[in-house]
């Protein structure tokens, strides 16, 4: 029997992750609810003053997105690690970085994309101006995949470690700073009627670089953890 082609293998990994996650839908909903709750807590903490909330909104939504993504990183490899699937993947004739990329894509569809879809609602909650709305959605659309990509490195490194959940935040959050700066910066720039094109191009550049390099690093980390 010939091994399936590269593309089929990646697609199978992707579809498998989606199917499993959809059967256990609480896994998908938890980060999303977390995102909603964190953003809701901010007005309660700083007061309901509309202008203050509007200036803080880009940062608050972006930080909440970072945290929600981070919370979901444990799911990326841990179940496959526990049941041995991951070792099978590592032994497969296909390049591991590509399979990791497929898994990261599935992770993004299950966490990043719902966050993007929910963000307009939160933007309304925080009185974001209409012209900022599209920018917010675009930045999240470009930025959340990078969060999943960088996060996969952290998830792979902490695989099977005690306290892995807290540890992954320590490893990954500092690496997220550029995304946060340009993501939230773009939305803030729109508040002053400024053009956010430079931010968006940079986020797109991060996405391309991340898609090319992060799977390699994550695959190397997985091989170390599986040793």
């Amino acid at each position: 029997m010939n091994p399936p082609s590269l593309f089929t293998a990646a697609r199978n990994v992707f579809m498998r992750d989606l199917t499993i996650a959809l059967r256990r839908s609480t896994d998908v909903l938890t980060p999303l609810m977390f995102f909603l709750i964190v953003v809701t807590l901010f007005p309660l903490g700083v007061g309901p003053e509309a202008n203050l909330l509007r200036t803080m909104a880009p940062g608050v939504i972006w930080v909440a997105a970072l945290l929600a993504t981070m919370l979901s990183l444990g799911r990326l490899f841990s179940n496959d690690y526990a049941d041995g699937t991951l070792e099978q993947l590592a032994l497969a004739p296909h390049p591991l970085p590509l399979l990791v990329l497929a898994k990261v894509c599935a992770h993004w569809v299950l966490t990043g994309l719902p966050l993007v879809a929910m963000s307009p609602l939160l933007a309304l909650q925080l009185n974001l101006e209409p012209r900022q709305m599209a920018t917010l959605v675009t930045t999240l659309l470009l930025g959340t995949p990078v969060l999943s990509l960088l996060g996969s490195i952290g998830a792979a490194l902490t695989l099977g470690l005690r306290g892995g959940g807290v540890l992954v935040s320590l490893l990954v959050l500092p690496l997220y700073t550029p995304i946060l700066i340009f993501g939230a910066g773009a939305v803030s720039a729109r508040a002053f009627g400024l053009d956010a094109e430079a931010h968006l191009s940079l986020l797109a550049a991060f996405l391309i670089l991340g898609a090319v390099f992060a799977p390699w690093a994550a695959a190397a980390a997985l091989r170390i953890s599986l040793d």
Partner: peptide, 18 residues
């Protein structure tokens, strides 16, 4: 080592964005 390498690639980016 993997983490340090990822970090060293990121430091210029972080520095530039900050």
């Amino acid at each position: 080592a993997v983490l340090a390498l990822v970090g060293v690639v990121n430091i210029p980016v972080i520095h530039f964005s900050v």
